[in-house]
Design a protein around this nucleic acid. Structure first.
Length: 106
DNA sequence: GTCTTGACTTCGG
DNA sequence: GCCGAAGCCAAGA
């Protein structure tokens, strides 16, 4: 079990309409570095798995990973499809929609 | 083997 | 509140 497989497991648990951050996932899995989460998700498309990576944003609620999606604006569209409002590449009411792994997973 | 590069975060100024 | 620097750690060159 590589660390990125655990990242996928957590990301898959994020409920639709909610978001979480790289740092929270890194902390919950004790990865020691939030960058590893982003790196893991970068590999996710390669794994052929369907990971809802659009629900993972940086600590400010910005869609920092949008550039790595297949098309332009794909990340935002997927979030809007879950009733999450995006303004200027940021999640509206980010703090309210924030889903904290440690409060829901063990 | 070292060096660079990040879908990041925190701290000092 | 906004920079710049540093810390972080796994790939890829």
């Amino acid at each position: 079990m590589h660390f990125y497989e655990r990242v996928y497991a957590v990301v898959e648990q994020i409920p639709p309409g909610r978001v979480t951050t790289y740092g929270l996932i890194a902390d919950f899995l004790a990865l020691g570095s939030a960058r590893m989460v982003g790196w893991a998700l970068n590999q996710s498309h390669k794994s052929g798995l369907d990971i809802p990576a659009h629900r993972v944003v940086n600590r400010k609620g910005e869609l920092s990973g949008r550039a790595h999606f297949p098309g332009e604006g794909v990340m935002q569209q997927r979030l809007e499809a879950e009733n999450i409002e995006i303004t200027d590449h940021r999640v509206k009411d980010f703090e309210k929609l924030l889903w904290i792994p440690s409060e829901h997973l063990l």
